[in-house]
Amino acid sequence: MSIPFSNTHYRIPQGFGNLLEGLTREILREQPENIPAFAAAYFENLLEKREKTNFDPAEWGAKVDDRFYNNHAFKEHESHENCESEKEKSGTSVKEEETPVTALESSEEEKEKEENAALKIQAVFRGHLAREEVKKIKAGAPQEEEAEGNE
């Protein structure tokens, strides 16, 4: 299809990219037989999650996109510091949970927050490890192949 004039009106909806990416990733990971049904369940699940936690991946994606256009978003250094402190907090909370008898002072809500933060941190760190590994493998791959070829 060709677009005859300017593309001013053909905008990709805000946050759509993020949804598409998430969907594709899950499809490739799960390799479902029936992709439309899988996709329907996937979005249904995200919707349910949004109702419970108020987290909208599309909105979040749009915000991330926004950062590239509105540079002043970068001026907020707070988020970075928050991350650090949350990391510490989550570290201690994990320990606390392991000792079941002590009275926990943090409320349910806070706990959930910490839990989420911990999950995120772990995920990012694992991603980092995986990427490092891939880097190593990519660098190592040509040599390895040569070695195998020689065998």
């Binding site: 909806p13 805000q14 946050g15 759509f16 949804l19 969907l23 029936n34 439309p36 049904a37 996709a39 329907a40 996937y42 979005f43 249904e44 995200l46 919707l47 949004r50 909208d56 991946p57 599309a58």
Partner: peptide
């Protein structure tokens, strides 16, 4: 769509 997530759920539910 104004709400991409809601619409996407509807799109695939119809498609499936």
């Amino acid at each position: 769509p104004a709400d991409v997530l809601q619409w996407s759920a509807g799109y695939f539910s119809a498609l499936s």
